[in-house]
Amino acid sequence: MRFVRRHILTVAAFIVLVYLFIPVAVVGVLSFNDPPSKYNTKWYGFSLDAWTNMCGIPGVCESFIESIKIGLISTFVATVLGTMVAFALVRYRFRGRKTTNLLIFLPMATPEVVMGSSLLALFLNMTFPLGTTTVIIAHIMFTISFVVVAVKARLQGLDPSLEEASRDLYADSRSTFQHVTFPLVAPGIAGAALLGFALSFDDFIISFFNAGTLVTFPIYVWGAAQRGIPVQVNALATLVFLVALAIVLIAQFVAWRRRKALQADMASRDADLKALSMDALSRS
């Protein structure tokens, strides 16, 4: 009990983290389930069927591939457009900055159901056919803001004297962008793209409004939820989770290794410095 009282914060934090992962664990465990019917909500028995035969249920893999395709296209477009806007915001003077900022902020503060329905209203009034195109348009729309915010943060964190130094060292503006600005902002852009893909891949509400007869992975899951979700869906979702987790953990690990190496370097450098100053002392 004393342990708990002394470590109450640690214990609370740990419990919250576990809480965050409980449903993920349930999704994962149920991917090994062997339910007699389509209702995969409680444990029946162990089976690897869903993992060995992921595309066994018609429609699942088609919707999965559709979602990946939509995610890649919309992420690419949104990343390019959002990065351009971020550069304009940080590097250029222009009229209407307030309006621009508002237009970037609002999509992040609007409920999905409002964005989805208003975009549908636009397409209906234009009698634009619903399908992959409309879903991609929608995904680009709600992803741009996140890209702008992420890249802008990175750009603002960039020391302006780095670009000045480049200009001072005979690089014109194109060359400065190519050799200094872009390489330094690239990690921010990559992060924004990953986030954009995650948002697009997992989006249900906005997609559902604008999909027409198109079936993305979340739309498939939604439809299946009414009549029982096949185990394959759990397996696919678990796979996505594991791949995404692996990517970020590896990135974390690389950053951690680099930090460690840096610390080791610093230590050896300090030793070098000491030796050097001793040397200087003995010479003088």
């Binding site: 020391d159 004297s161 780095l162 000045e164 130094a165 480049s166 200009r167 001072d168 060292l169 005979y170 690089a171 014109d172 050799h179 200094v180 390489p183 330094l184």
Partner: peptide, 27 residues
């Protein structure tokens, strides 16, 4: 700036963090 026969040592050095020392000097 990039056409002047003048070079600057910046206050915070402004070394390019993504390039190593050789490439910084060679820039």
């Amino acid at each position: 700036a990039f056409k002047r026969p003048v070079n600057t040592v910046f206050q915070s050095y402004a070394l390019f963090p993504h390039l190593d020392i050789f490439e910084n000097v060679a820039f």
